[in-house]
Amino acid sequence: MYRFLRNRVRMVGITLPADCVGKFPRILCGSNPGNSGHLWVKTTFITGTMPLVIRKMPPSEGGMRRQFIPARLEDNPSMAKDDPSYMDRLSGLGSASLVKAMRDGDWDVVDGAFFDEWSNHQHVLTPFAVPRHWLRFRSGDWGSFSP
């Protein structure tokens, strides 16, 4: 649906002020980690980019510019002021990993997985040449998004 709607964003016959040239047309999206569409959003907007970096997408991805702006609960100070019980409701989600995802904007959370302590910092290595004397084996995981 997003890809379909993206082709409807166009500007014809409009002269933009100089300070707006290159900024329109635009699509603004907001989302939270978890639930339906989590992996699509993560793959489409987050994986392979650095936060706040603006990148020009190839024609196969619509050719528009794209930017990932991460957010944590603490980034919204009015939330604590205007809705002081929000953190209690968030804590009541029943899943520590989902609470972490919502509070910290953590898109690496895998809610409901048999391992709920995933951490890129702890579990992802910088690529290196595997020494010849190490045991090697193969395994497969059909995954949950794109087998």
Score class of each variant (00 low, 15 high):
10 R>S: 15
13 G>S: 09
75 D>H: 03
99 V>A: 02
121 H>P: 00
109 V>P: 11
106 D>W: 09
100 K>V: 00
95 S>P: 03
25 P>G: 08
101 A>L: 01
119 S>T: 00
109 V>S: 11
100 K>Q: 01
17 P>D: 15
15 T>M: 03
59 P>D: 13
34 G>I: 01
126 T>L: 06
27 I>A: 10
31 S>I: 11
49 T>C: 10
58 P>L: 03
81 K>T: 05
25 P>L: 08
92 G>D: 03
38 H>P: 14
7 N>R: 13
32 N>M: 11
126 T>I: 12
63 G>M: 04
51 P>Y: 03
51 P>C: 10
90 L>D: 07
61 E>P: 02
6 R>I: 14
99 V>E: 02
12 V>G: 09
134 W>M: 10
40 W>V: 09
34 G>Y: 01
27 I>K: 04
128 F>M: 13
55 R>L: 08
129 A>H: 06
141 D>C: 10
28 L>Q: 15
75 D>R: 00
54 I>C: 13
85 S>Y: 10
126 T>C: 00
136 R>C: 06
103 R>L: 07
115 F>H: 06
82 D>P: 04
25 P>R: 12
96 A>Q: 05
98 L>V: 05
110 V>Q: 12
6 R>Q: 15
7 N>F: 07
112 G>W: 00
130 V>E: 05
137 F>Q: 08
13 G>M: 05
92 G>A: 12
59 P>Q: 05
74 E>C: 06
24 F>N: 03
83 D>E: 09
69 I>V: 14
16 L>W: 08
112 G>Q: 09
117 E>A: 12
107 W>I: 00
49 T>G: 06
98 L>E: 12
126 T>N: 05
63 G>F: 12
10 R>K: 14
32 N>I: 15
50 M>S: 01
73 L>E: 06
61 E>R: 11
58 P>C: 04
75 D>F: 00
